[in-house]
């Protein structure tokens, strides 16, 4: 029994056990990510993870990579600075639905519009976990949260559609039940040159599942298994989630578009002529 979990080499094991609740899917999402970087072409030293604040915000701190736990809502602009100063890096933003789409929503659409070469992994658990289960921009109508005690009345974001129409080159959705597919999606997304987005639906049993009578983490996982429909290339307009409805999973968008940095070098070379030295990062 002395054998070590092969994942440990990617984790800051001295920080275990993690702070996540029993039945939380975040650790599972981390496993998918580890699986994605295990056979990624990029050396691990060149991969950097940036998180915001919240339960998912803690992911960066558990991964044994150059990792940043930034301010609430701001991992994308932080990652933008990181990537632009060292374009050789693979920069992955790992954060939650509240962080990326409420307080950080503006940064998301602009990074997508610019086609900044970042991979955004959004763990969507439909709630603010760290602060006690408040409503988020992804909470379905009628779902209960601590700040919607009579049920949510606001239309949630359809995240893949938002990413798609903001300009992302890769858009996928999986649940943490779909571990292999999620890992594959993360790998593919990291290989894209441009703004890639993956939504990972994950259980928050403590604050969302319990309050909405879905049950514990395992029951929520079972619900993901039962309710999800895999349909690649579905039009993102048709993948909105509703309370207890079907969860359409798959790879919805995979297209080529010139990334911000490539565009920068192309356009500057046009303006400056043959004397322009392509920008490859801060020396």
């Amino acid at each position: 029994m002395s054998a070590k979990n092969p994942r440990n080499q990617y984790l800051r094991t001295e920080r275990m056990p993690n702070i996540w609740c029993p039945g939380c899917g975040l650790g599972t999402a981390v496993n998918c990510f580890i699986s994605a970087i295990e056979d990624c072409e990029t050396p691990l030293d060149q991969i950097s993870v940036v998180s915001g604040i919240g339960c998912t915000g803690r992911v960066a701190g558990y991964l044994k990579l150059d990792s940043f736990h930034t301010t609430h809502g701001r991992p994308i602009p932080f990652a933008t600075g990181l990537k632009l100063s060292n374009p050789k890096l693979k920069v992955v933003v790992f954060s939650g639905d509240g962080d990326l789409f409420a307080i950080g929503g503006n940064h998301f659409i602009h990074a997508a519009r610019r086609n900044m070469d970042l991979t955004i992994i959004c763990v969507n658990n439909f709630t603010y976990g760290m602060t006690g289960g408040q409503v988020t921009p992804t909470t379905p109508i009628d779902a209960f949260s601590s700040t919607t005690p009579y049920g949510n009345i606001e239309e949630p974001f359809n995240l893949p559609f938002l990413a798609d129409c903001s300009g992302a080159v890769y858009v996928a959705r999986w649940t943490v039940f779909h571990v292999r597919q999620a890992a594959r999606a993360m790998r593919e997304a990291m290989h894209k040159n441009g703004f890639s987005f993956i939504e990972i639906i994950s259980p928050c049993p403590t604050l969302y599942g319990r309050r909405n009578k879905i049950g514990d983490g395992l029951k929520m996982m079972q619900a993901f298994k039962d309710n999800s429909v895999i349909a690649d290339e579905t039009d993102t307009r048709n993948v909105a989630l509703d309370f207890r409805g079907k969860i359409i999973c798959g790879k919805f968008v995979d297209r080529e578009k010139t990334s911000f940095l490539d565009m920068y070098n192309i356009k500057m070379a046009e303006r400056f002529g043959p004397f322009y030295e392509p920008y490859e990062g801060i020396k």
Partner: peptide, 29 residues
């Protein structure tokens, strides 16, 4: 900046500017 190997980006707001700068710092700028 383009002719001296620098990178300027106009961000979407000042919040983004002030944190993008810090991302750049950790990448060595």
């Amino acid at each position: 900046f383009p002719s001296v190997g620098g990178m300027f980006i106009q961000m979407e707001d000042e919040i983004a500017s002030s944190i993008a700068m810090q991302g750049a710092v950790w990448a060595g700028a």
